[in-house]
Amino acid sequence: MFEFIISHYNYWMYIGLMMVGFYAMMVKRNLVKKIIGMNIFQSAIILFYISTSVKKGASVPILEHAHEGHGAVAHAVDVMQYANPLPHVLMLTAIVVMVATMGVALAVAIMIYKRYHTLEEDEIIMAMKRG
């Protein structure tokens, strides 16, 4: 049981982080707070994917002794020595897309503030109902 908790607690921490972001997106009424919640949510998802690439005792995925022989000499690579590179690549893309999404969301929030002079969701909805 204790070993099970040691080997799974980090997944539960990511889920807790994701719940914090989800709560902020759903309950907070301020638009910037909602965007902060979205950022936390996406970071938690990326953290989960990166954590699947971890191997015990593995190092960064940069091959050792690559430039010793001139040209590309095929070395026997010990796969267990390096972390899994594929989730890193995919999440590199996801981080950049996350910031692009955040930029567009902030631009929309600025536009909403210019029109309604408030960032609170309930006040915006009241102003929209008024016409």
């Binding site: 950022n39 990166i50 690439s53 971890v54 593995a58 190092s59 960064v60 890193h88 910031v99």
Partner: peptide, 18 residues
């Protein structure tokens, strides 16, 4: 977690530009 490329992308893009 040995994901250095992701780490410096996060440090420059998300913590800096964000």
């Amino acid at each position: 977690m040995a994901a250095v490329d992701v780490a410096f992308t996060e440090a420059s893009v998300s913590a800096g530009i964000g």
